[in-house]
Computed example of a mutant assay.
Amino acid sequence: MERFEQLYRDWKQDVKKLVADLDVLPLEALIEVLERVDVASEDMDDVRKAVSLLVLEETTTLPPNHQPTPDAVSLFIGYLATKLVEDKATLLELGSGTGTLVHAVLSQLNEATAQAVEVDETMLRLSYAISNLLEKPVSYFHQDALEPLFVEPANLTLVDLPIGYYPNDEVAKTYDLHRTDGHAYAHFLMMEQAMRHTVPGGHGLFVIPNNLFEQDDEGKLKQWMDREAVVKGVLQLPTTMFKDERYAKSLLLLQKLGEGVKRPKQALLVELPSFTDVRAVANIVKQIDDWFKTT
């Protein structure tokens, strides 16, 4: 048994005991456990893997927009981040939830710092506990990510887009991507907010629904992208990850316009294989490495 599996099992038992003894919700028990465990002698990657497993298990019953980004996807985004920014980069995640994504990315960048914005207090507390456990420098902001933010501009913004309508029409009207008729799409507004807080020439990495552009019935998303950013790539996640292909997702890579930013001759368009197929993933990674070298 690998060390992270043993940590996972030990902490899982601690969570179960707290739930039974104190009659608290599993996520609250998990926060309590992570705030008091001693990992001074542990490898931080083992700790991160164990925590990711626990978080995944304890959030399976939550609505889709509250579930964490799968660890394999988060790690792949981390790999892409190493191609986009220097080690000492500043990151920003909007709607950070449990922090699975931002912590996976930070694990692959040296001396990077991050800011995370999350409206749900329990999720924020959990992510904060994980940051302390992993000794990762993350500054947290407890607020609606679509309201005015007082964060530092980032080299790389990350959003696993929450899909649905945004109910606050007054706030939505402050965005170019508000809808003329009815509530705006929260996922459209999140993209605009992320790029607002990205430095010129910086990048935005988004987990998007495959039908994102089909939802652009007013044409505003395309107009906004042409005006504000360059589409560097679209990487379709393995369809095997989704029980229903209608809910399949991709990774969208944008670069904010700025001095010296040019549109690539050929965008990075990739269909990712199953992350369990090591050889196929290695081949795709080589293709992506070659694309970055020549772009």
Rank of each mutant, 00 (worst) to 15 (best):
T295S: 13
A229P: 07
A104M: 04
G202E: 11
F292Q: 11
M195A: 07
M1F: 10
E170D: 13
R3N: 14
D43Q: 12
E271A: 13
T157K: 01
G260T: 13
V55G: 05
Q287A: 06
Q236E: 09
P64G: 08
G78K: 02
L221E: 03
S274V: 07
M190L: 15
H203G: 02
W224K: 08
H66R: 12
R246C: 09
L235V: 02
Q6R: 12
T82L: 02
T180S: 14
H66I: 01
L53H: 05
A114T: 07
L252N: 01
H66L: 14
S107F: 03
E118Q: 06
A248V: 06
P273D: 10
T122L: 15
V230F: 03
T61V: 07
K249H: 07
A129Y: 03
G260S: 11
L124K: 01
F275G: 01
M44F: 13
H142C: 08
V199S: 07
V151N: 08
V278F: 07
P64C: 07
M225H: 04
E271S: 14
P137F: 00
D14F: 03
R3Q: 12
F150G: 04
P238C: 08
G233D: 05
R246E: 15
L91I: 04
D23P: 04
L158E: 07
L109S: 09
H197C: 10
F4C: 14
S96P: 09
V73I: 15
L134V: 10
V85P: 04
I208Y: 02
P26Y: 11
P162Y: 12
V85M: 03
L124E: 04
P167W: 02
K83L: 09
K136H: 06
L94P: 04
I284G: 02
K220R: 15
T90R: 15
D176K: 10
E28R: 06
I284N: 02
W11T: 09
L133P: 08
F275Y: 08
V278N: 04
L75N: 10
S250K: 00
S131W: 02
A129Q: 01
E214D: 13
N132C: 14
R179C: 00
V105H: 05
A172Y: 00
A154F: 11
V159F: 07
M123F: 09
